[in-house]
Design a protein around this nucleic acid. Structure first.
Lengths: 228, 228
DNA sequence: CTCATCCTGCGATGTACGTCACACTGTGGT
DNA sequence: ACCACAGTGTGACGTACATCGCAGGATGAG
């Protein structure tokens, strides 16, 4: 694990709570996982008690309906944590984790983390905060599903992705989200076609330019307005 | 606080974790709140760092969209906890809490609970589990919004309410949910009218009988099938 | 380079559900 | 006992979005 990884890991809620000594000890027991694009890390209904932090790349969490249709819960990038639910609430996984890009992860199992929680109760507090934030965000998304139309949800999703993965560039903000329109559609809970039309509409209005698995945001304010 | 209250409180995730001694100490510092039907305990955007456990009655958590439309996050009954998010993640409340029936609550503030968390780290673990379960449930509901039609969501909501508030009776299961059809509609993310039609349809098929703020479930299996 | 496969773009059609309108019923307040 | 008003029941109508169909690009494996 290189210096950059250490920095990335340090921004995860788990490590944030620890002093350098504790962080060092915890780093010593994480194991590293490498995934190539499209590879699945774990699947719905599997047993599993490992928690992951993204070091590099992007991971999507998906749920599959009985009829096979899919739903994208979230897309996670560096420093973000996932898989912890089955650690605190020992049940089979309720989502699958699949690499959207080539990715490297840090992994911690139940038996590795648990003693640490006992020894460093401040970690629990940070984890509670992280889960509380997630719950807020999820409730927000629920409300959006009910109240906001598809273009609005697409705008919201893009803004969120822009905030997390956007890179300033000559003509605006370059958001390389690495998602196909199909995946974007699953993320906002709509059909691929409608999302495509919404994007085309935004592009035609000059708010953004569409690229392969990315967009150039040209007028972020307009996009914000459309998202409300 | 009477014996019954003590028992109800003991089933909340907060108290579950404690031995009798700890529970007794914690009980000593909770304060009791009384609400009459329709009264609001706290509102969206308010500051607040108190956590509540329902002792008696029912509370709804609602969000209001900018345009005034409402969304019901959940309906909580005895032993259920709410308001803890702003305790772990100190931000204004993201939902309002309103009494659906006359209700009594036990309340704990930040300054009361925090020392307890330090002294009893096992509480944090139980709280983590509680939040993890909630997150799973919320994700489930999201998927339903995307994949399940309104009648299906109504069926799901009724089954959930039945499980939590149902009373066995002569002809089936009596579910006194205390919600108007308007509130039920806000809970499943649909219009009052469509929910009414779904209920009428279920009743006409003989799956249930509609009563004021309640239903008699007559054929729970059919209802289950319709919900999937 | 070439073919197969994945991804994107976009029009035509159907439908579930929201909105509107209105009538009926129960309930609680003075 | 009355009226007001909150809650329920149901039809007519419009529309946002899913579904279907297909065509044009991009991508990558051999």
């Amino acid at each position: 694990m290189n210096d950059r990884d250490v920095e990335v890991l340090g921004r995860a809620p788990l490590f944030e709570a620890l002093d350098e000594e504790g962080a060092k000890a915890l780093r010593a027991i994480v194991s590293e996982v490498h995934l190539s694009r499209g590879q699945t890390l774990f699947s719905e209904d599997q047993e599993g008690d490992r928690l992951y932090v993204v070091l590099e790349g992007k991971i999507k969490l998906t749920r599959t309906a009985p009829d096979g249709r899919e739903n994208l819960l979230s897309v996670l990038g560096p420093s973000e944590m996932f898989g912890e639910l089955s650690l605190f609430d020992p049940r089979p996984r309720t989502a699958s984790a699949i690499a959207v890009t080539e990715a490297r992860l840090a992994a911690l199992g139940h038996s590795d983390l648990w003693p640490f929680l006992k020894g460093h109760p401040e970690i629990s507090i940070h984890l509670l905060r992280a889960l509380a934030q997630r719950l807020r965000r999820t409730n927000e998304n629920m409300a959006d599903l009910v109240f906001t139309d598809v273009p609005g949800r697409v705008a919201k999703a893009l803004l969120d992705l822009a905030e997390r993965f956007g890179q300033p560039s000559e003509s605006g903000l370059h958001v390389h989200h690495d998602l196909t329109q199909e995946e974007l559609a699953q993320l906002v809970g709509a059909s691929r076609e409608t999302v495509n039309k919404a994007l085309a509409d935004f592009a035609q209005r000059g708010w953004l330019r569409i690229e392969a698995r990315a967009v150039q945001v040209l007028d972020i304010d307009r996009l914000r307005k459309r998202s409300r």
